[in-house]
Simulated assay, not measured.
Amino acid sequence: MRTGAAAGHTGYFHEAIRYDSDEHLLAVVVPFLLGGVDAGEPTMVAFGERNAGLVRAALPAGCPVEFLTGGEVYARPAGAIRAYRQLLAGHVAAGAGQIRIVGELPAEALGATWDWWARYESAINHAYDEFPLWSMCAYDERTTPVAVLADVDRTHPRTARPHGRHEPNPQYTEPELFLLENRPLVADPIQQGPPVVDLAGPTSAEAREAVRAAELDAARREDLALAVSEIVTNAGMHGRPPVRMRVWAGPGRAVVTVTDGGPGPAYPYAGLLPAAGDASAGFGLWIAHQTCSHVSLHRSPEGFTVRLVQREP
């Protein structure tokens, strides 16, 4: 049975918290968590160390709220979706009528890699909609860039506020529209110099070989080789010629772009969710999202570009 503001709702009840003080954050989060505990619902926090400490201190001693390791949960968008779907399915199988989670992205997600986290925030409106989930995503207005906050309003149907207020966001955009928009492509510093590899019409074997000289540890280098092979294969099978691959490399970092002359995948969730039975939905993109440090998708009059970034911590 659904409780609280989500009573009577079917599927995912997705809210943002835009807070401007610690007191503001706690005024929303603590009643949300205590309401879940009182209702006997699985109730979880996926915050970084600082905000998790604030919440722990504000909850009654012994309060059975589970604290997840937010940094591990939010390593990559596609991985977060996979992990949360497994977690939610387990609670539903155990009989949960509603699940409550409050979380926050790590600070680094709000910078140069925000494009794929914006896609994540939009895509989960669909990816979690089969579960009785009520979640809140916290964003600190004192430190979050204005452009990111604008995307927060567009990817969350509602905003949770103190005193039990839950307001619809007029700017909310359905994921089938939002995910096919061009996200701003932030130039990677390593791309200021010329590429070390520039291939026209590469085969998957040539693509793998081109990145094996990257100055990365063996595991990340092989993950990048797998991702590049998949993206080049996708470009040849589902894109349009010409296909061009370029590589920039430096100590502990490599950037690869693969461009073809086509419009890119029509499947909005490409990279974040595999589409069963539809090869054109980009299973290769999904693999790249599991193995790379950052993946950007960009459409232009010249065609469709996938940029893969692989870096060591």
Rank of each mutant, 00 (worst) to 15 (best):
A127L: 01
Y128G: 04
Y128Q: 02
D129W: 04
E130H: 11
W134M: 14
W134N: 09
W134S: 15
S135C: 07
C137I: 03
A138K: 00
Y139N: 00
D140M: 04
E141A: 09
E141G: 00
R142T: 08
R142Q: 11
T143P: 05
T143N: 08
T144E: 03
P145H: 10
P145A: 05
V146M: 11
V146K: 11
A147Q: 15
A147T: 13
A147R: 14
V148M: 05
V152S: 00
R154P: 00
P157S: 12
T159M: 02
T159H: 06
T159Y: 03
T159Q: 07
T159P: 02
A160L: 04
A160Q: 02
R161M: 15
R161P: 08
G164T: 10
R165C: 12
P168I: 00
Q171S: 10
E174H: 15
P175V: 03
E176C: 08
F178P: 00
L180T: 13
L180I: 13
E181Q: 04
E181H: 00
R183V: 01
A187N: 10
D188R: 14
P189G: 08
I190E: 01
Q192T: 14
G193A: 14
P195M: 03
V197N: 06
V197D: 08
D198W: 09
D198I: 04
D198Y: 12
L199G: 08
A200F: 10
G201R: 03
G201F: 11
P202C: 08
S204N: 06
A205S: 13
R208L: 05
A213W: 09
A213E: 12
A213H: 12
A214M: 09
A214E: 04
D217E: 11
D217K: 07
D217P: 05
D217T: 06
D217H: 09
A218S: 14
A219Q: 12
R220T: 13
R221N: 11
E222K: 12
E222T: 12
A225M: 01
A227M: 13
A227Y: 06
A227S: 13
I231E: 09
I231F: 02
V232G: 07
T233F: 10
T233L: 07
N234V: 03
M237S: 13
H238F: 15
R240C: 14
P242D: 07
R244T: 13
M245I: 07
M245A: 07
R246Y: 09
W248M: 01
W248F: 04
A249L: 06
A249E: 05
G250W: 00
P251N: 09
R253P: 07
R253A: 08
R253S: 12
T257C: 03
V258P: 03
V258F: 07
T259G: 06
G261E: 02
G262W: 02
P263S: 08
G264C: 10
G264K: 04
P265F: 05
A266F: 09
P268K: 00
P268A: 01
A270D: 06
L272Y: 04
L272G: 08
L273T: 00
